[in-house]
Write a protein that binds this DNA or RNA. Structure first.
Lengths: 199, 199
DNA sequence: GTCTATAAGGAGATAGAC
DNA sequence: GTCTATCTCCTTATAGAC
């Protein structure tokens, strides 16, 4: 399916590029319009203000976060083999997170989360909490079916998710995207974690 | 001991305040000088440029990071009781990290780590790696003395440090500093971790 | 939807008096 | 060390023609 690249989307893409490296305040409308290839005033045919562009981008971030909906039936069938389940699911997550767009999104959130923008509320905490909630459900099920040791699923989820997020953050700064290295690190973490929850 | 508050230090403190919330690009020299109570031009009697203020601040961050030197003999004596050692050491770390200044420092690093500044190199990765190196040494010793299970000390260090850093990051956004809550979370993590490394 | 033109003010930085 | 005054460029945003 061909991607729609009208001017509005061009502006959004360019702004995301610039905001995620130079920051919102460090980027001028001039830079955005120049890169897009239109005049400064042309921006205002598509967005009411510079801040409005940021608001739209941050809304996109919120709508692009990963929820329970990505857990397929195929994946669910592997719930009885927690180690395999964790590795395959994490692989899916990492592959999604490791796209250029998602990396820019996360950088943007990191940089701009302390800025107050009316009607928008995105932060690193929010993203982490979302992941923890999903994994709480998963571990809760695993405990119910006695696939893993009894314990607080929330604690399991935190111990599981925190290192994966730190790995994600660590590879956010690096230029080259070494997917293999990230997955290796995650696998190593999963192996370690598995030893602490297996029956 | 009374704190020296000459104009240069006032500028640094105000700039740290503003940079860590509005960002470097989002802060003007005008704002800084206004808050300090001098004219804009007065800034240039103390710093060669706006960027120079940032550089000095980031140098301060680097010099204020916590190294092995804070491990006292008293603490070392408790190495044979890993669980207690970890809890006491983490308590010291958290208390240091939880000062207003250190929180501003970390926010500044988070916000500005993607900006290129000549001669300065500070990033979240750097801070995390420093912690991991210290804890690698500690776990290495614990393994040598057979206080804990045999294993890769680096892996131990990562599994130990990552969650603590995530907790630190999570409480960076919050206004009110609930030290008790942070320490509780860390203790919970240490208990969990202890179960996976005890002999 | 995009252009030209322009407003109205903010930005960082310097010169020179006190 | 701080002040006043000033320079030059950049900032977001609007009005109105095509």
């Amino acid at each position: 399916m061909p991607r729609k690249t009208n001017t509005r989307n061009k502006i959004k893409n360019v702004a995301l590029d610039l905001f995620s490296t130079l920051g919102f305040a460090g980027t001028s409308v001039r830079q955005i319009s120049g890169t897009v290839g239109i005049r400064e005033s042309g921006i205002y045919n598509h967005f009411s203000s510079k801040e409005n562009i940021l608001k739209v981008l941050l809304d996109d971030v919120k709508n692009s976060t990963i929820g329970v909906e990505i857990i397929t039936d195929e994946l669910l069938n592997k719930l009885s083999k927690p180690q395999i389940f964790m590795k395959e699911f994490v692989q899916i997550l990492i592959k999604r997170w490791n796209t250029k767009k998602q990396k820019k999104y996360l950088r943007l959130v990191l940089i701009e989360q302390f800025r107050e923008i009316k009607g928008v509320n995105v932060s690193l905490n929010l993203l982490v909490d979302e992941s923890i909630n999903i994994w709480s459900l998963i571990f809760s099920e695993m405990i119910n079916f006695r696939y893993i040791k009894k314990g607080d699923p929330k604690v399991y989820a935190e111990e599981f998710v925190y290192p994966i997020f730190m790995i994600r953050l660590q590879y956010l700064v690096e230029e080259k995207v070494d997917l293999e290295k990230i997955l290796e690190k995650c696998d190593s973490h999963i192996d370690y974690f598995w030893n602490s929850i297996k029956r």
